[in-house]
Every structure is written in structure tokens, then in C-alpha cells.
Design a protein around this nucleic acid. Structure first.
Length: 141
RNA sequence: GGAGUCGGCCGGGCAGUCGCUGCACCCGUGAGGGGGUGGAGGAAAGUCCGGGCUCCAUAGGGCAAGGUGCCAGGUAACGCCUGGGCGGCGCGAGCCGACGGAAAGUGCCACAGAGAACAGACCGCCGAUGGCCCCCUAGGGGGAUCAGGUAAGGGUGAAAAGGUGCGGUAAGAGCGCACCGCGCGGGUGGCAACACACCGCGGCACGGUAAACCCCACCCGGAGCAAGACCAAAUAGGGGAACAGGCGAUCUCGCCGCGUGCGGCCCGUACGGUUCCCGGGUAGGUCGCUUGAGGUGCAUGGUGACGUGCAUCCCAGAUGAAUGGCUGUCCAUGACAGAACCCGGCUUAUAGGCCGGCUCCCCCC
């Protein structure tokens, strides 16, 4: 875990294009997702929330040695299924890219009002900012 | 060539790369890995109809409620589709139609208008007939319009007592006649809806409204994949057994027996420890879950919807929920939009493009 964090800080590409074959594979297996209702509940009951744009990131350290992602984009804030899929795909893709540089956290991303009107650039900026904040806050602890 | 109309189809392509996911195969004790192969739509949407499937209910029948509503066919079924009829719109191809019943009953028909349902004289026209005035005066002529006559014209209205023409009359009027229309009965054609340049009768309306109540005919049990079936921790609780045996006695039966509370004691009653089993059942998991009223091709019956036969193909199945990101390039900027048990329809949204049938107009030969 510690090795992963230091590697990420020295990594030149944080926003850049595809890495073209680094040492670490940027995969997104099922083990990197929060799939159980109890896990969701435990994370959402924790106090650490970071608002970034129209998204809220709720984080809780875990003992697994890797970061996990869970999504909760409500139909109330993004009524159309296509738009909802777009938001979730952006989040998953960005998480996949930054997974190896993140601390060992369970992160649940919540949608907030106004999310429906965000374009891809705004969305990506919000997500990138959230990863940086999460890394800084949990890297030392 | 232009305008229009109907039907069908596509709805970014290609290459590279990094990911996700179903399936079978290989490697690995296992976690997992490897290469292969499949991976959103014409509407996946709205959830408006109709089915399949599942559980519950149910002898049979009726009422109520709801729905459908020209006729015939297609279909698993339909409120859908096809063909036909009728009415309306369009030069036409075509399009549109809750299109059964108003002589079973009830209700409503505003405003305007003189009058609106067993209806009417406001303006107008007439004033033959009766009365009035004038003139010549047996008799006749003229005038005004009091009685009155009149539904042709004006005006009101969504709608005003069938229409046109001729006759007729004081003026008019189905008052009479001809044609058209209407109603009733019959005939003919058609499976039927219905049609008719067919026959007879009736001078002629039995106004509209049933997406107002209603009447008639037909159809209809309820809930939905979070349906439902199975496996099944932990905790609490339910039921049962054992933990304790001994004595008498012939296989069998009888008697006594743990601790604590209530009580002076017995009977009685309540509570309690450990282990195991049983059933219900929560978290969680598995199935349901994709081979189907299925697609494609050929043949064949039918005007058609569609049916039949043969061959061939397997074409998403996720579950905190996959089907995407990036780069290059081309067409020249890609609309509406994302499966959640599955089908058949309807409705709504939709940038742009392709193909075919038909109609009308213009030009050339």
C-alpha cells in the first residue's frame, strides 16, 4: 500500500493519456467494487464526506490493501437512464485509472442536485479533484 | 425535372489500444490467469391494451363493476392487423371516422330571435271575403288597411316545417303535377355490413344529443419475477430427547429418584444447567433467466393480414447492476435514446440518409 502511494506521487501522468504498458495494470476487477449492502451501509454511516462539484465522495479506510468503489447515482437527480450511465461510466473509468495510486479506502460516490446538467469536462474535473483530496487526507493516516 | 402520397430499411464506418461481462476450452490445490467467442433499441421509453408463465382463489350459474361496439376474416389473444361497406376531405394517389340503438323511458338544447318540438306573424306580401271611406250609382270602379289571410322574400340562429320547375292564387302554400330526396313494405345481388337507373304505398317528416343517464350484443376471478421454488449461517424464540440411575421381577411391567422458589411437611406448581435432534425462518446464496406464438432462406395456399411444409442458425442475460474510455483516420459532425421474466400490438420521441410502388403538374422526343 505504501509502495503504491509513493509510486503514484512520482507518476508523471495523473490526468494524461493512456500509459502504454506501465508495470501496474489498470484493471477494474470485481474485488475493487463494493458489492454488499452492509459495506455500503458502513461507508455511508461514516463521517468523512468530500463534496466536489455535483458529487459527494464518502470514504472509509478498509483492511484489504486496495481501494474499492461503489456508486449511488439516484434517479431523482439524473432522470434519464442514458445520462445516468454516462456519469457512472465516467466515474468507473476514472477510478480504474487512479485505483493503484489511491489509499486503501472504500469510496461511495453519491449524486447531488444539478448533476444532470454537468458536461463531461466538468464531471472529470470534479472527479480528479476528489481523488487528489482523498489521497492527501488518507495517505499519512 | 418538380410537387405529393404510401410502404420498407439504415441510423456513424474502419483500425489500434486499455478495460467490463456471459459461455465453452486450457492452466492452477485455490484465489485467479490465458487465448477464443457473444455482448442494447427501433423505439429497449410511456406502461395504454392483449397473451404466456407463476402463486392464490374457484361446483355450476346470476348480478354488479369495467371494457369493446358497421361487416367478414387473421391470430395464442387483443382496444391490433387485413379485406370490404358507409360517411367526410382531396383534381388524384390516398387520408380521416367510439361508425350499434333516439317509434323503451328520463334529461339537456345556452345566446340571438316574433317563433325552437305536438313551435311562429317582427319587417314584408295580400286584403279575394266581411266591415269602413269616395265616385257614378239595379250593378260596378277606386282607396286606406280594421278584422283577417299568408311561411314566397328579409332578418335571427348551429338548426326555421324537404329541393327545383311548372301550374295555381288576392297573396301564398305538397294545394296539384313532374323530377330529385325522404319514410314504410317487398324484390334482386351479396356469407354479411350494405347496395340498387327494380316494384308498390304514403304528400312527407318519427329534430339533435347515447366520449348524458340508459337499452342491446359480446368479453372479462385476483395479484404480479420484489411472481414463485430451493439451499441456508449468527442471534432470539418454539417442539422433542438425553444427561441418572437404582430396586423388585420370567421376555414385560411396577416403584423410588437432580437443584431452587412458594409451603411447617406431603401433594401440587413455577423456574433453572449442558449436549443433541426437528420444523419455521432472517442475512446471504442458487434457480426462475433466456430455445422462443424465435430468426433466415426456399416452396406453396390466399386479393391480403396470415397459414402450411422443408432446410438452416443460436442471436445480451447483468444483479450496487457489464455492453465503455482513449488515439488515429474517413464520410462531413451522428437525432431520440439504455435491456432487467418473455412475447404480440398501440402511442409518444427521433439529426440525417437509402430503396421501391403510385398520383398530379411542367418540359423534350
Amino acid at each position: 500500500m505504501l509502495r503504491a502511494v509513493t509510486a503514484s506521487l512520482s507518476d508523471p501522468e495523473l490526468i494524461g493519456p493512456a500509459p502504454s504498458g506501465g508495470e501496474q495494470q489498470e484493471t477494474f476487477p470485481r474485488a475493487a467494487r463494493i458489492t454488499r449492502a452492509v459495506d455500503f451501509k458502513r461507508v455511508l454511516d461514516s463521517a468523512c464526506r468530500i463534496k466536489s462539484g455535483c458529487l459527494t465522495f464518502v470514504a472509509l479506510p478498509n483492511e484489504l490493501g486496495r481501494a474499492r468503489l461503489g456508486l449511488a447515482i439516484p434517479k431523482r437527480h439524473v432522470p434519464r437512464a442514458v445520462a445516468r450511465n454516462r456519469v457512472k461510466r465516467r466515474l468507473r473509468e476514472s477510478f480504474r485509472r487512479h485505483r493503484n495510486s489511491l489509499p486503501s479506502l472504500d469510496v461511495v460516490v453519491l449524486g447531488r442536485p444539478g448533476l444532470n446538467t454537468q458536461n463531461n469536462a466538468q464531471l472529470c474535473a470534479s472527479i480528479e479533484r476528489a481523488w487528489r483530496v482523498l489521497t492527501e487526507r488518507f495517505a499519512t493516516s
